[in-house]
């Protein structure tokens, strides 16, 4: 059984705009690939093409060894898809939603019920299973949505921003489930705006920006390029920013991003912090605030493209604009 995903030169245009531009990627069987990028990077469009929901303008993609255009019907038999929003029927109960999917996948009535109950237990929804979905919390909906895409025991699973809108606890719970699927041998392609998420789950990461692949590798490889953390510096006076930038560049080895009186730069070593403070003090530059934070998606983009990612995570949490409407 071929559980790989192979994408070659995939292109998708929307009314003159190129949403996905010559994307190529490989996911070996049983691997988790993280497709990382800001809103509008083409992540959802790529997933929709791989899940046979959208036809490519050019290029080829094989999912489980099957062509997503010529063998779309057979691709649908082996994939599971969880979108950005919980795509379940609000009026039905959780159990009814799962039974419906099972029936549509060709299971007999009794088998469909058994599979639904099994998944409800598995996803801690046994109690809630008999309530309409409209009474569910966001985390419960997302669990049900994931359960719904697993009804047919797909060999290949697409998760489009699975943790958007989830609180930290629900997010960790989701991560644990994805890891279990991975352990069971499922090939997973997940999109995310969070480096942390890709880091936690993915065997390898492909970074998308404006429809193009701008970097790929393991989380460790990318971090080595990006720096694991970001030095954050706020000066007392904005007119000293240029001088401070020169000092920081010498010390960290990379050009900092300057915005008014704030500077940020990727750093590999936390021990650099005292040195930065010392040098700036010696140069007579007044520091108002100094700190280290974990590398964010913005930092990845900063170091890979020299520009900040177009999406700030908090604004995207609503999730209903931009890419998922595209």
């Amino acid at each position: 059984m071929d559980n790989t995903i192979e994408v070659e030169g995939l292109v998708r245009d929307f009314a003159g705009t190129r949403a996905v531009d010559e994307v190529s990627l490989q996911v070996p069987a049983g691997h988790v690939l993280g497709l990382l990028g800001p809103n509008g990077a083409g992540k959802t469009t790529t997933v929709r093409m791989l899940a046979t929901l959208l036809s490519p303008t050019a290029g080829r993609a094989r999912v489980g060894g099957l062509d997503v255009v010529d063998q779309a019907a057979r691709v649908r038999e082996i994939i599971g898809l969880t979108g950005q929003y919980a795509s379940v029927d609000e009026k039905l109960t959780g159990r009814e939603n799962l039974i419906l999917i099972a029936r549509l996948l060709g299971m007999k009535r009794a088998a469909a019920r058994a599979r639904a109950d099994e998944l409800l237990v598995d996803f801690s929804l046994r109690e809630a299973g008999h309530r309409p979905v409209q009474t569910y919390s966001g985390g419960m909906r997302r669990r049900l949505d994931l359960a719904a895409s697993l009804v047919g025991r797909p060999r290949i699973l697409f998760l489009d921003e699975p943790s958007t809108g989830l609180d930290p606890r629900a997010r960790r719970d989701l991560w644990a489930r994805v890891r279990r699927l991975q352990d069971a041998g499922t090939t997973v392609l997940l999109t995310t705006q969070y480096l942390e998420e890709a880091d936690a789950l993915a065997d390898s990461i492909v970074v998308l920006d404006q429809g193009r692949v701008i970097a790929e590798g393991t989380a460790a490889e990318l971090k080595a390029r990006v720096g694991t953390r970001t030095l954050f510096l706020r000066l007392a006076r904005a007119d000293q920013a240029d001088a401070a930038a020169r000092q920081v560049a010498t010390l960290t080895g990379s050009e900092p991003h300057v915005e008014g009186e704030t500077l940020s730069a990727p750093v590999a070593e936390a021990s650099l912090l005292p040195a930065v403070l010392r040098e700036l003090d010696a140069a007579g530059i007044e520091v108002a605030e100094l700190g280290l934070r974990s590398a964010s998606l913005d930092d990845v983009f900063l170091s890979l493209t020299g520009q900040t990612g177009s999406g700030d995570a908090p604004a995207d949490a609503a999730g209903d604009s931009g890419e998922d409407a595209a």
Partner: peptide, 16 residues
């Protein structure tokens, strides 16, 4: 409702 909530997409990704 199905179109705006994504339910239609789920159906389209099924072998039906």
């Amino acid at each position: 409702t199905d179109l705006t909530r994504g339910v239609f997409d789920r159906f389209r990704a099924l072998p039906i």
